[in-house]
Structure formats: structure tokens, C-alpha cells
């Protein structure tokens, strides 16, 4: 089968990655909330609205 070599620009916004890239990379932050990143862990102190040690 003949190989296909092609390249095309997918973002033209000055200084920016495409909105698709932004959306995809934004999902990386989903685990930055302790409650989300460690759902089964004993993180009672972290999950409270505010704690005072």
C-alpha cells in the first residue's frame, strides 16, 4: 500500500496551541483535588471544608 506523508498546520492562533489541545490538557488537572485523586484514601482532614490542626 502506498504510504501517505503529509503535514498541515492545525493552529493559527498567535502564540497558542489549538483549542483542542487546551481542552485535552485541561483534563490533566482533574486529579489535583485531593478528594478526586485519592477517592479511597483516608483523607478526612483534606476533605473537610476547612481544618485547624
Amino acid at each position: 500500500m502506498k504510504k501517505n506523508f503529509a503535514i498541515k498546520t492545525i493552529n493559527t492562533v498567535k502564540n497558542g496551541i489549538s483549542s483542542a489541545a487546551k481542552n485535552e490538557s485541561a483534563s490533566l488537572l482533574k486529579f489535583l483535588k485531593p478528594a478526586d485523586c485519592c477517592p479511597t484514601a483516608d483523607f478526612t482532614a483534606l476533605n473537610k471544608a476547612s481544618i485547624s490542626l
Partner: peptide
């Protein structure tokens, strides 16, 4: 950012 084919 550039889209490229699998072969490239």
C-alpha cells in the same frame, strides 16, 4: 502545532 499522518 502540525497534524501529520501516521506514516510521516
Amino acid at each position: 502545532t502540525y497534524e501529520i499522518t501516521d506514516d510521516l
